[in-house]
């Protein structure tokens, strides 16, 4: 770890501490740091693996955590907060991407990609993502805890255990909430598909 990285880790750890002690404004200072790290990790991975690259949300967030948080000075609550922030961020990043790409429908539905669009994503899934996000926003109003579970698991890539830790609930609760939220979201997506079909 370079001096700059160490300094950053210290900063992130401190912000997580502030967050744990109830200072919500720390999120706003934390977001850009985490975001930058996620991007660095992503582009590093993609340039290393020129073809057939995969980016798992789980792996990304975990790598960011390892890089950004000073492991010796942190406890499980910091970890939970970090993943909470990271998951929110992931959701935001994806939503933003989906919005701009979903908005740019091209060629009357035909899939047209250009020469240099090496990382273009098929627009159907982008659309799906958008619909998912909208459904998740609705879920937030109906059941905030379920929405959090989805956010952590889906966007943050956390497993049941980690999600339970982050939310301070039992793993059984996470499993139940996850099962229902997932089913509900599926139903919402299916309905959306029917509408557009």
């Amino acid at each position: 770890m370079t001096a700059a990285e160490a300094q950053q880790a210290q900063q992130v750890t401190q912000l997580l501490g502030e967050l744990a002690s109830g200072d919500r404004s720390a999120v706003h200072r934390l977001l850009p740091l985490v975001y930058a790290e996620l991007r660095r990790i992503a582009s590093r991975r993609l340039s290393r693996e020129r073809s057939g690259h995969t980016l798992q949300a789980t792996a990304l967030v975990h790598e960011a955590y390892l890089r950004l948080v000073d492991q010796r000075k942190t406890d499980w609550r910091n970890r939970a907060h970090f993943f909470g922030v990271a998951a929110q961020l992931m959701r935001h990043i994806l939503l933003d991407y989906a919005k701009t790409h979903g908005a740019a429908k091209r060629g009357g539905g035909a899939l047209r990609v250009t020469l240099d669009e090496s990382m273009a994503v098929d627009s159907v899934r982008v659309e799906e993502l958008l619909v998912l996000d909208e459904a998740l926003s609705r879920l937030e109003r109906l059941d905030p805890q379920q929405a959090r579970v989805v956010e952590l698991r889906y966007y943050g890539g956390l497993n049941v255990q980690e999600t339970a830790e982050a939310l301070g609930v039992s793993t059984a609760t996470v499993k139940r909430e996850w099962a229902m939220a997932r089913a509900w979201l599926h139903a919402e997506l299916a309905r959306n598909q029917e509408r557009s079909a």
Binding site: Y35, L38, R39, A42, S43, L46, H53, T54, L55, Q56, A57, L60, M90, H92, I93, L94, D96, Y97, A98, T100, M119, A120, V121, D122, R125, V126, E128, L129, L132, V150, Y154, A179, M180, R182, A183, W184, L185, H186, A187, L189, A190
Partner: peptide, 30 residues
């Protein structure tokens, strides 16, 4: 809901491509 919970489609699907695109695209004015 029970019917939906029987097939695990979307949510487990990897978001690899979208993530890759979203994170490497200089696209986050916020």
């Amino acid at each position: 809901l029970f019917r939906e919970s029987e097939h695990s489609g979307l949510v487990d699907r990897t978001l690899s491509d979208i993530l890759a695109a979203a994170l490497t695209e200089p696209n986050a004015p916020a």
